[in-house]
Structure formats: C-alpha cells, structure tokens
Amino acid sequence: MHIVVNAAMSADGKLSSRRREQIRISGPEDFARVDRLRAESDAVVVGVGTVLADDPHLTLDDPALIERRREAGRPPHPARVVVDSSARTPPDARILDEAATTYLLVTERADLERRAALAADHVEFVTAGEERVDLLPAFVALADAGIETVMVEGGGELIFSLLECGLVDELSVFVGPTLIGGRDAPTLADGDGFVTDFPDLELAGVERLDEGVLLRWTLEG
C-alpha cells in the first residue's frame, strides 16, 4: 500500500482557525491538483473530526477524471474511508451516500446502535482496536479489500497518528498566503507530538501554485 498525505495549510502552518471552521487556503489550481490526486487513488481517508466539521463528500469534480476511471474499469469515484473510533459519523453525512463505497474504521467499543444506523449496502465496517482505531491492522484490512493507493486528507490528529505508525510514504502540502495564528488552531500534525525519533523527510519537489507553493516530501525508512 502507498499512502500520500495531502493538506493545505496557512503560511504559519495552520489547517484552520481555533474555531475549526473550514477556511479557504488554496485556489483553483490546487483544487484541480487535489482532484487529480483523488482520481489516482483507490481511497480517500479522513478522520471523523473532519466529517463532523466540514461534511465532505470526497468525490471527484472533473467529469473527465470520472470518465477516465470508468474507461480503466475502476469505480467512478475512489472509496471513502473514515477513521471513527466511536462511530460518530452522522447517518446523513454526505460521505455515506451511494456515490462510492465508504469504509468506517471503528473500535470494539463503538455502540452497536450507532453502527446499525450507519449500515448500508455501500458501507463497510472495519473493526480494529479497543479504545482507538489500531491503524496498522485497519489499513491491512483495507489492503486486503484491494485498496493499494491511499490519499489522506486530514485532519491533524489522524495525520500525526499515521506518521507515528510509520504509515506515510509521501507528504504533499500546499502552503497558502494566509496567516491564521492561534495556539489552539489545528496544525498539520497534532496529537502528542514527537520528542524523539522525528520523521525524516526528503524534499521531492517545489512548485508555485495559485498564490502559494506546493511542497512535496517523501519519508525515509
């Protein structure tokens, strides 16, 4: 499995404000790039916090990309994956519609009634871990389901957890011309943070997009 983390952050490294509201950081060129990256992926992954804050759909926008996937014998949209320990995804969330298969990664403590409310023919549950989703076996289960290329779109807690587990192969970050500030505003990698064994990044590319810059790194080891 190949995992790419993709994010847009402000010039001071924030994903959104302390209110955790969706803020437009990038522009049309980067939006098109993200759509192409989604089209190349078998699945797009987010944490439940992103679902609750933004209600994303995570489908493709460009009809040409959809048609290209169909011509290649692939589903029109990549699968969607939500890391959701307690099955907090709202039943009416857009990510649960029939546009694509959705995988819900939950734990053994996830309430059975909540699971039942989310059940549908196009929704697949993966149970891994007791209190928090155990990402390693969960992603092994996704690989067993045929998912080979994965795009992770946030948020910061999930990205940190994936980095901590050594599951990230590439990091692609658009840095926009915006300052957000705030000690409580989410960053690219939240969680507990590293104090030793910091992940080593190798710069793979720099490209100007819109009024910002796209930075691409690969992770060593």
Score class of each variant (00 low, 15 high):
A87Q: 12
S85D: 14
S86G: 10
T59G: 13
G73V: 15
E148M: 12
T127E: 15
L112M: 12
G13M: 04
D54W: 13
E124G: 05
A141K: 15
S161Y: 05
G181K: 13
S10Y: 05
T178E: 10
V168C: 02
D192H: 02
L167A: 06
R216K: 00
D184H: 15
R115S: 03
T89R: 11
A100K: 13
H122F: 10
P28D: 07
G193V: 09
L163E: 02
V4G: 01
A32I: 10
S17P: 08
V51K: 01
D111I: 01
Q22S: 10
A11L: 15
D184I: 14
A64V: 07
I180K: 10
V133K: 14
D62V: 07
E157P: 03
A79F: 10
S10K: 11
E211F: 08
T187V: 07
G191D: 03
P76I: 01
E40C: 00
S41E: 02
R68M: 04
A43V: 05
L136G: 06
E170H: 01
P56H: 02
L201W: 01
A87H: 11
E153P: 07
P75T: 13
L158Y: 03
L162N: 01
G47D: 02
E170Q: 02
L136I: 14
R208P: 03
D12R: 12
P90I: 11
L52R: 04
E40G: 00
D134Q: 14
D54P: 13
L162S: 02
P137V: 10
D35G: 01
A189W: 07
V175R: 08
D190N: 04
R74Y: 05
R18C: 03
A87M: 11
L219V: 03
A99F: 08
A189R: 13
V152Y: 00
H77R: 09
R183F: 01
V44Q: 00
D54Y: 12
F125P: 07
G221H: 03
F125L: 14
E29D: 10
A119R: 15
G166A: 06
R115Q: 07
V48F: 00
L219G: 09
L201S: 00
G205V: 02
Q22V: 14
H57D: 10
E29C: 04
E108R: 15
V82S: 02
V175T: 13
A32E: 07
V46Q: 07
L203E: 04
I95P: 15
D169R: 07
I180A: 06
G221D: 07
V44I: 06
K14N: 09
L142V: 13
H2W: 11
D84A: 02
T89M: 03
V82K: 07
E211R: 15
